[in-house]
Amino acid sequence: MATQSAKPKWTELAVGTAITVPGSARQNRTGDWRSSRPIWNHEECIRCGVCVIFCPEGCIHFDQDQPGYPSADLEYCKGCGICAHECPTACITTQEEEE
């Protein structure tokens, strides 16, 4: 399906101003809200997935490249710190973002 414009002409608005592209919010890169980022220590990580569950952004996934280890999609991570706080082995640290 075609994308919908954020500044459409009135003739370009979808019927009833509906949003016809499911999950189109993915285009909001909320990662730029972040002031610190989570870093996983793979030596301590037991790959339990608690961080995956509790992420309010739903942006922590088990990494494809690092088999089985979780990582945050920094395009969306707002840096709330919940993952680091909830990690049962305290393997996540938060690192300040540089300006």
Partner: peptide, 19 residues
Amino acid sequence: PISMGPVGIPDIYTETKQV
């Protein structure tokens, strides 16, 4: 799946009224 009745920010609202 579609989303009906979304927020119309100032960039959108005027156009919706013209429609």
